[in-house]
Structures are given as C-alpha cells and as structure tokens.
C-alpha cells in the first residue's frame, strides 16, 4: 500500500508521489539543509518529522565534512542497511537550491531500485525549476522557527 505524502510546496507533490510508489518507500522527508521540511510521508506526527529533520540536517553536515577530510570532497549520499529496514539519504537540486531527502525502505525494495528512481526524481525536479524557486525561499537563519512553521504546514498547528 502506498503512503500519501503531505507537502508544503505543490511542485513537490507529483514527483514525490512517483518516487514513493516506484521505489516502494515506507517513510521519508524532503527538506532544506537547514532542517525545514517541505514534504513528508509515512510519519504520524510532527514530533517524528522534527527529529528526522534535525538528524538528517546534522548527518548531512557531518558527512560533508567527513568526506572533505577523508576524500578531499564532501560525501553526498548515504545508505545504511538495518536488519529489516534500510535508510537512503541523498541531495537534490531545484535550480541552485540544494535539498536533502531521506527515505526508508525494506526488503520489498532494494538500494539499486531506490537509487534508480531517486535519479529520476532528481531529473523531474530539475524540470520544474522556475516556479519552484519562487515558492521555496532559502533559510533565514531561524532554524527552530523555520522547522516549526514547516511542521505546522505539514501536520497543522499544534494545539
């Protein structure tokens, strides 16, 4: 059964739906490197997404620095296989703006499939550049405020 995504930017909806269905992903988040979520699927509440965003943002920063130190250039893609589930993390661009994606899958999919369909997802985002840029302003420096606003948009305001 496919999980439906919720997004704050309409241009993300169709490509994300396709990625989820094709790669058979269980859950995931599409976010800015600052931690602001633009889309999520498979999570029940804002708290879960908040944790994922903070972790992905930190992992991305650490991986980039680790890559620089070990290989002279940043690491941009990560795959972590667990016992039952696996995590795939990578970046995508919409125009000059960098975004991060993290997706979880199980034995119903494979790393090869996820990589393949993520490449298609990256391409489809590349085709919708102009409108997307206007709708997704860059980070303001207010990490917590941005994160809370994006979570409100995805799950509704906390009561």
């Amino acid at each position: 059964m496919m999980v439906n995504p919720t997004v704050t930017e309409p241009w993300l909806d169709a490509p994300l739906r396709r990625l989820i269905g094709d790669a058979r992903l269980i859950s995931g988040v599409f976010l800015l490197p600052s931690g602001r979520a633009l889309g999520q699927f498979g999570f029940r509440d804002a708290g879960e997404v908040m944790s994922v965003c903070a972790l992905v943002s930190a992992i991305n920063a650490s991986a980039q620095e680790l890559g620089r130190q070990l290989d002279g250039k940043p690491f941009y893609e990560m795959h972590h296989p667990g016992v039952d589930r696996q995590v795939f993390m990578a970046r995508a661009f919409v125009g000059p703006q960098e975004y991060l994606f993290v997706g979880v899958f199980d034995n119903d999919s494979s790393l090869g499939l996820v990589e393949m369909y993520f490449a298609e997802f990256q391409q489809s985002l590349g085709n919708i550049v102009p409108q997307a840029q206007a709708a997704a302003p860059g980070p303001s420096g207010d990490f917590e405020g941005e994160l809370n606003r994006s979570l409100d948009a995805l799950f509704g305001p906390l009561r």
Binding site: S109, S110, G112, L113, E115, M116
Partner: peptide, 13 residues
C-alpha cells in the same frame, strides 16, 4: 545496465 540490473534483481526476488 544499472537500471536493468536493479529491476532484474527485484523481479527475480
């Protein structure tokens, strides 16, 4: 080839 490989392994599974 990468795509064929990924899909073939998936299909076989």
């Amino acid at each position: 080839r990468r795509h064929t490989a990924a899909l073939a392994a998936y299909l076989y599974g």
